[in-house]
Deep mutational scan, measured.
Amino acid sequence: MPVRRGHVAPQNTFLDTIIRKFEGQSRKFIIANARVENCAVIYCNDGFCELCGYSRAEVMQRPCTCDFLHGPRTQRRAAAQIAQALLGAEERKVEIAFYRKDGSCFLCLVDVVPVKNEDGAVIMFILNFEVVMEKDMVGSPAHDTNHRGPPTSWLAPGRAKTFRLKLPALLALTARESSVRSGGAGGAGAPGAVVVDVDLTPAAPSSESLALDEVTAMDNHVAGLGPAEERRALVGPGSPPRSAPGQLPSPRAHSLNPDASGSSCSLARTRSRESCASVRRASSADDIEAMRAGVLPPPPRHASTGAMHPLRSGLLNSTSDSDLVRYRTISKIPQITLNFVDLKGDPFLASPTSDREIIAPKIKERTHNVTEKVTQVLSLGADVLPEYKLQAPRIHRWTILHYSPFKAVWDWLILLLVIYTAVFTPYSAAFLLKETEEGPPATECGYACQPLAVVDLIVDIMFIVDILINFRTTYVNANEEVVSHPGRIAVHYFKGWFLIDMVAAIPFDLLI
């Protein structure tokens, strides 16, 4: 008679799926529990143990900040960024110097990925580790590398530091407007667009060049630039800015003055950032001319202004700041037409079709709590990747769950009947059967004279019903998954307890 339990259901295979997918890609990662103190490590794979030199037993239950890997060259700011990422709910990448158990130093890129439950609360953290440099290539500990984003994938490793954006290309926007319009339909740009040429040739750093990471940081200074100062900065030398009595002219307006920039070969870094931020506020060169004239017309309804409409929906549905990093990277690809469009465009503009998908598509409701890094690593669709929660398995109709209350009560009843059979069957065979043979035949009273025979008949009927119930009862397979398919249940029961239950259900007393 089957006594099969499996009270692990309803099970959740999400954690096993993450481990299996990460292991298949030869990654070095740990999984931490966000619900406990210090976000203790609950799993670390073999790749991480080989990377740091510690065994799994030495890593388990330690804080996922990996303070046991810190050393003299470990930056405090990087460690603080990892700790801050564990307090938030967004994906974050941090470069930090770690030390192995043998004392060797290596520069590592740590990717902190939160995993949320159905309520939107962070319950786990996945920390992925990628070695960037070994100890002989690690720089000085005073050099802070965590304020910069990861290198873009479309640049060669040897040319990542030679990417320079020439400031004269930004200063000569109005001069290039006529050349853009003359391109017409034969050019790649839309009317009114501004073409910015980027020099990728390796050259020595000069005062006129600005690194790509500095251009990325310009967006942080746009908020500090007032509207009046932006307007004066875009007017140009024809209309000098008016300053109040006793007030000095704005240095932001002076930063885009061609006369002032041409007199000296070098520009201050602050002026460069502010000038680029001011130019980015204009949607095209037409807006710059309109600002000089004193009238700013409404933005025209053409394809170039609607190019950012799908980007707005993608940004609203993005799951991490990696989408913004990807957008900034692609927006700086050289030799393309940049349409400086305000994100607050007309909502009635139709979304044009684009061959290049900048932001990841909208994630469906079932995966809105899973970050983009987890979705990318697992390579699963929205119909396959579940949320991290207890999910009731989908069972067929008329199927009994093996952990249901009805099955528990039924098993206790069958257990009592088995005990009765084990006690009274030998007793009936030894004593009652002998008395029946010696006594007179009682054929007239039937079952009324033999109450134990009636009980034995009921017990046999219950055993037959138990066999039928076992054909529709779920079970737990070797992978700790609840199986509810009727065919698989029948095959599993035939290979197991079916023969024993059938022999126990045969009414031998009635056959004798």
Results as ranks from 00 to 15, higher is better:
Phe348His: 15
Pro251Ala: 10
Cys39Thr: 06
Val132Lys: 13
Ser179Met: 06
Ser179His: 10
Val8Lys: 10
His70Phe: 13
Val370Gln: 05
Ser250Arg: 12
Ala203Phe: 06
Leu256Phe: 14
His368Thr: 14
Ser354Arg: 05
Pro202Ser: 05
Ile330Arg: 12
Lys116Tyr: 10
Ala253Lys: 15
Arg100Ile: 01
Ala85Met: 03
Tyr99Asn: 01
Val113Thr: 08
Gly192Gln: 12
Gly149Tyr: 06
Ile18Gly: 01
Gly103Tyr: 05
Glu37Met: 09
Val195His: 04
Pro168Met: 01
Leu69Phe: 01
Leu225Val: 10
Ile358Trp: 13
Ser320Tyr: 11
Gly306Val: 07
Ala121His: 10
Ala89Lys: 13
Ile30Lys: 01
Thr367Ser: 11
Ser206Met: 13
Phe68Pro: 01
Trp154Leu: 13
Pro151Gln: 13
Leu378Arg: 02
Ala185Tyr: 09
Ala253Gly: 09
Ser243Glu: 15
Leu173Gln: 13
Lys116Gln: 11
Ser55Lys: 13
Phe29His: 01
Ser331Ile: 01
Lys332Phe: 01
Lys135Pro: 07
Cys44Ser: 04
His309Asp: 14
Ala79Lys: 08
Arg5Lys: 13
His368Lys: 10
Leu167Asn: 15
Pro297His: 15
Val377Ser: 04
Leu380Lys: 04
His221Ala: 07
Arg100Asp: 01
Thr329Gly: 06
Leu87Met: 10
Asn317Ser: 07
Lys332Leu: 01
Ser255Trp: 04
Arg181Cys: 15
Ser304His: 12
Glu91Val: 08
Ala211Thr: 13
Ser266Cys: 07
Leu311Tyr: 09
Pro157Arg: 14
Gly53Ser: 01
Ser243Ile: 01
Val122Tyr: 03
Cys39His: 14
Asn146Cys: 15
Ser263Ile: 04
Leu316Tyr: 07
His302Phe: 11
Val325Thr: 14
Leu171Lys: 15
Val279Ile: 14
Ala277Lys: 14
Leu225His: 06
His254Ala: 12
Gln247Lys: 06
Leu267Tyr: 14
Ala121Val: 09
Asp286Glu: 14
Glu130Phe: 06
Pro10Met: 15
Cys52Ser: 11
Ser283Gly: 09
Glu357Asn: 15
Gln335Asn: 15
Ile288Gly: 08
Asp346Val: 11
Arg280Asn: 05
Phe48Thr: 01
Ala204Phe: 15
Ser153Trp: 07
Leu256Gln: 06
Glu134Ile: 04
Val195Thr: 15
Pro251Thr: 09
Asn33Ser: 10
Lys101Asn: 01
Ala32Gln: 01
Val3Ile: 08
Gln81Val: 13
Ser239Gln: 14
Glu274Val: 11
Gln376Glu: 12
Arg252Pro: 05
Lys332Pro: 11
Pro297Cys: 07
Ala142Arg: 07
Glu118Val: 09
Met60Ala: 01
Asn33Tyr: 03
Asp321Phe: 04
Val215Ser: 15
Gly236Ile: 08
Phe106His: 01
Gly187Lys: 04
Pro237Val: 13
Ser26Tyr: 08
Arg269Leu: 11
Gln335Asp: 11
Arg148Ala: 08
Phe22Glu: 13
Ala185Pro: 13
Ala285Trp: 11
Leu87Phe: 15
Asp321Gln: 11
Asn220Met: 07
Ala40His: 05
Cys39Tyr: 14
Phe22Ala: 13
Gln11Phe: 12
Leu349Ala: 09
Lys161Ile: 01
Cys66Pro: 01
Gly238Ser: 08
Leu167Arg: 05
Val131Gln: 15
Asp111Gln: 06
Pro334Phe: 01
Gln84Trp: 07
Glu357Pro: 12
Ala121Pro: 11
Gly186Thr: 07
Gly187Phe: 06
Thr371Tyr: 08
Asp102Tyr: 01
Leu107Ile: 15
His368Arg: 12
Val59Ile: 11
Val295Ala: 14
Asp346Ser: 14
Glu208Met: 04
Gln247His: 06
Glu37Gly: 14
Ser331Lys: 14
Pro63Leu: 01
Ala253Thr: 07
Val41Phe: 01
Pro63Glu: 14
Ile42Thr: 01
Ile82Cys: 01
Cys52Val: 13
Asp102Val: 01
Asp321Leu: 05
Thr74Ala: 01
Glu365Asp: 13
Leu385Met: 14
Cys52Glu: 01
